[in-house]
């Protein structure tokens, strides 16, 4: 086992982890700050200031309604994080529970759960999210539910796969011999041992959730006006590509950086958690 000092030292040496953590940290910090303060209101329409170039007053300029693009991006970060956290939360909670159940019970329970996840994988995730929001109606909450639901089978599959490996280990046999039930073994031995895999998975799913929300909002199914959303900003900028290309560039960069940051963070975490990689270094 490595000590916590070794862990930190390795973290500091990992470029992926550092860049990922910096970008994700910026994203989280921006969202946090925007809860209390933005340079201007992100929703207040001010027609006299429409489509102004970036300036001291509006660092990234304004959109066609005269809203401050920087403030909209900041509040949009909030929106992305909210969607990411809640959607991944829904997916992880239900998915891990199902996966752990399948792994603990095996037999027909595992068959049913895994065939259901196979079934849901047959549909492209974003398409099922579009279908769900079309049925439930557009909006942030419904897009969170839709993204959350398509996360469930992913977590179920990863949990079951990793948990099955743990269930085959000797210490589980020992726990069984000591008379512990399947539920206690899952909680006390299985989940702690697969936590690292799940955290990595959650980080990557978080990035995908942000991307999915932007996609849904771009299609008009996600966050509704006036609440700012990166995807909708992109959508609204489309027709103004020739007039003010920056309106599409800035939210595009924001989405790209957020997704890149979370992916790098996920990669970095995987490297750190992986004992094989740790020994090699």
């Amino acid at each position: 086992m490595t000590t916590s000092g070794g862990w930190l030292a390795r973290a500091l040496r990992s470029g992926n982890f550092l860049i990922g953590a910096a970008l994700s940290g910026t994203l989280a910090l921006t969202a946090l700050v925007s809860l209390f303060w933005t340079p201007k209101s992100a929703t207040a329409i001010s027609i006299p200031h429409r489509l102004t170039q970036p300036s001291g007053e509006f660092p990234l300029g304004t959109d066609h309604f005269g809203r401050d693009v920087l403030s909209m991006l900041m509040v949009g970060a909030q929106n992305s994080i909210l969607v990411g956290v809640v959607a991944v939360g829904i997916g992880a909670t239900l998915g891990i529970a199902l996966g752990a159940l399948a792994s603990a019970r095996r037999g027909w329970v595992e068959e049913v759960v895994m065939r259901l996840t196979d079934f849901s994988f047959a549909f492209p995730a974003i398409l099922s999210a579009i279908m769900l929001t079309a049925i439930l109606g557009p909006g942030t909450v419904n897009s969170i539910i839709a993204i959350g639901i398509f996360n469930i089978p992913l977590f179920a599959r990863v949990t079951r796969g990793s948990a099955n490996a743990i269930w085959a280990r000797e210490f589980i046999l020992a726990a069984r011999a000591a008379g512990k039930g399947a539920f206690r073994i899952t909680l006390e031995h299985v989940l702690p041992n697969i936590a690292s895999v799940l955290i990595v998975q959650a980080t990557i799913q978080f990035a995908l959730a942000i991307l999915a929300e932007a996609g849904l909002s771009y299609l008009g199914l996600g966050t509704q006006p006036p609440q700012p959303s990166w995807g909708r900003m992109l959508n609204e900028a489309q027709t103004m590509m020739f007039l003010a290309p920056r309106l599409a560039v800035f939210p595009g960069i924001a989405i790209a950086l957020a997704v890149l940051g979370l992916n790098l963070l996920g990669d970095g975490l995987r490297d750190l958690f992986d004992p094989k990689l740790a020994r090699k270094r």
Binding site: T43, A44, I45, I47, H64, F65, P225, P226, T239
Partner: peptide, 12 residues
């Protein structure tokens, strides 16, 4: 688009 955009301005 005239309706969607006017809607945002009217809402504000």
């Amino acid at each position: 688009p005239y309706a969607r955009r006017s809607g945002e301005v009217i809402a504000s």
